[in-house]
């Protein structure tokens, strides 16, 4: 049996997931060869980045313009008290490289909107862990344009949402779901958020990311999962494409 060039240490490190028939050696090699961009290294981005790094996703591109503040530490578990005042992407890189020195991390201390197209080219999958609609709409447009699958998560107070978008005929994009309204977004700064909630939603984003990368099972393509921690209720809503969507339904986009 060929081990696709993986060294003994790697086979040991990833043994518990290589044992899964859904992953196996081939899937592990695919993870090692994958590039995933994570936008927003906060409450959701922390578990997403840590799980993907631990699992051996070969190249993680981290995008966040912020620095670590003390009010982040209650839920942004990738940081510790020593990270205060540091750029989030740099503090996160340090933690992830300690967790798994075998992978590559590319930190961008920028707003997503200021990245250029070259930085999107090698990206196999994007995970939206951002905290505002402007960034979410920009991410969606870039993913539609560059044909990048998008795993979107959001959480506030005791409620969360997850949805996966792929740029295919008859499947919706983020913009089909949310019209680009002037509606002010609620923020965790003003409304608060239960720490483990972002762990739940972020972990589910990491699961969906692995499923999409390795074509495992049925990712939440065009399905919005709503979660209420208060009652522990889930609802899975089937979304539909907006035939008049200015992002994914314009002539030339299809």
């Amino acid at each position: 049996m060929k081990f696709a060039g993986m060294r003994d240490q790697q086979l040991l490190r990833y043994n518990r997931q290589i044992l899964l028939p859904q992953i196996d050696i081939i899937g592990q090699q695919k993870l090692l060869d994958s590039t995933v961009m994570i936008v927003g290294i906060g409450g959701l981005g922390s578990p997403v980045a840590m799980y993907l790094a631990a699992m051996g996703v070969g190249h993680l591109v981290l995008v966040d313009h912020d620095v670590v503040e003390i009010s982040n530490l209650q839920r942004q578990i990738i940081y510790d008290t020593e990270s205060l005042g540091q750029a989030k992407v740099i503090a996160a890189q340090k933690k992830l490289q300690t967790l798994n020195p075998e992978i590559r991390i590319s930190p961008f201390q920028n707003q997503f909107e200021s990245l250029n197209i070259e930085q999107m080219k090698a990206v196999d999958l994007l995970i939206d862990c951002s905290d505002n609609f402007t960034t979410r709409f920009a991410i969606n447009a870039a993913c539609v344009q560059n044909n990048i699958p998008l795993v979107s998560g959001a959480a506030i107070r005791l409620s969360g949402q997850i949805v996966v978008f792929i740029n295919q005929k008859n499947t919706p994009c983020y913009r089909c779901l949310y019209p680009d309204s002037e509606q002010e977004a609620e923020t965790c700064t003003e409304n608060g958020v239960l720490a483990p909630l972002v762990g739940v939603i972020g972990s589910m984003q990491a699961i969906e990311a692995v499923k999409v990368l390795l074509s495992i099972g049925k990712p939440l393509y065009g399905k919005l999962l709503l979660f209420e921690a208060q009652s522990m209720q889930w609802r899975k809503i089937n979304l539909s494409k907006d035939p008049a969507c200015p992002v994914c339904s314009l002539p030339g986009q299809r």
């Binding site: 927003g40 609609f133 959001a154 969360g160 949402q161 977004a185 923020t187 609802r235 809503i237």
Partner: peptide
Amino acid sequence: AVNLEYVSADTAVKDGDEVAFFPPVTGG
């Protein structure tokens, strides 16, 4: 959403339907 299908507000509702209302959420 009606019966777990995303719908517009002018959609007709039938006996026994479940109607769910949810806001956009963006916190990260």
